[in-house]
Amino acid sequence: MSLETLDSPRAAAPDLLRFGVPLALALVLVAFSLMAPGFLTLSNIVGVLVNNVALAAIVSIAMTLTVASGGTDLSVGTAVDLGSLAFVSAIIAGQPVWIAAVLGVLAGIGTGLFNALLIAGLSITPFLATLGTLFIGHSLQQLTTDGGNPVYVPTGSIPPALAFIGHGAVFGVPLALWLVAILAAAAWLLLARSRFGREVLAVGTEPQVALYSGLPVRSVLAFIYIASAAIASIAGILISANVNAYVPYSGNAYLLNSIGAAFIGTSLSRTRRANIPGTLLGVLLLGFVSNGLLLIGWNFYWQQVGSGLLIFLALLLAFTGRRDAA
C-alpha cells in the first residue's frame, strides 16, 4: 500500500480546474469587452485571429507534436524562417508559386531531418539538439542574406497566387484560418485517434516501456521532428506571402508562445497529455490577452508580463490539479 491510496481522491476538484482555462478565456473576453469597447467587435476579433492567432496556432500545433513525444522543438522558428527564405528565393528566381511553396516545405523537412538525425540517430536530448539547430539556422540565415537583410519580392512582379496566399479568403474566411483548421484537424486525428498517435504517447511518456513493447521508438521520434518542422515551414510561407518578403529570424517570435500554448493545453487535459484542442485554447488565450492589453492602453513593453502571468496561472492550475489527482 502506498501513501497515495491513503488520501481519498477529491474527484470534483480536478474537473473544476480543467475548466479553469476555458473559464479564464471567457473572463478575459468579458473583462476586455467592458474595458475596451473596440474589443468585442467582429473586425477586431477577425483581426486578432488572422494577425495574432493563425500563425502562432500553426507553430503551436507543430510544438504540440514534439511535446506529445516527450520533447520540445526549440528550432520551430528556424523551420519557419528557412521555409520562408526558400519560398521567397524561389519566387524571386521566377519559379511558380506552387513550386516555391513545395520548396519552402522541403526546407522545413530538411530542418526536421537534421533534428531527427540528432535526436533519433544520435540520441541527443531534444532540448539540446533543437537548440543547436536554432543556432545553426541563425548563422545560415546570416550567411545567405548578407548578414541578415530582408529579401523582398519586387513590388512590380508579385504573382497573384502569392497575394492570394497572403490575403485571400475562401467562402469569406481568410486562407490562413482554413490552414489552421486543416492542420489542427489532421494533427488532432494523428495524436488522439491514430495508431501512430498511441505510439507517440507511449514513446513520450515511457520510452523504455515503448521499447520493451517492440515499438519503433526511433522512427516515431524521427517522424515527429520532421512533421513539426514541415508544419512550421507552412507558417513561414504564410508570413512571406503576407508581407511579400522574407524577414530574418521572424520565426523565433513564435517559439515562446508556442511552448506556452502547448503546455497550457497539457494542463487542460485530465491525464496531462499534450492535445490539440488545449493548445488552440492556449493560443487563443495568449492572443486575446495581448490584444486586449493593447486596446486598454497598456504599454507594449508590459504585454509580455500579461503572457507570463497567464502561463504561471496555467502551471498553477496544472500543479494543484496534479496533486489532487494523485
Binding site: L201, T205, V209, A210, T271
Partner: peptide, 18 residues
C-alpha cells in the same frame, strides 16, 4: 515499473501497446 508498464497510461492503452 520502468520497462513493463507505462504507469501514466491506462490499462487498455498498456494492454494493446504491443
Amino acid at each position: 515499473r520502468a520497462q513493463g508498464v507505462a504507469l501514466a497510461l491506462a490499462v487498455d492503452e498498456n494492454t494493446t501497446l504491443a
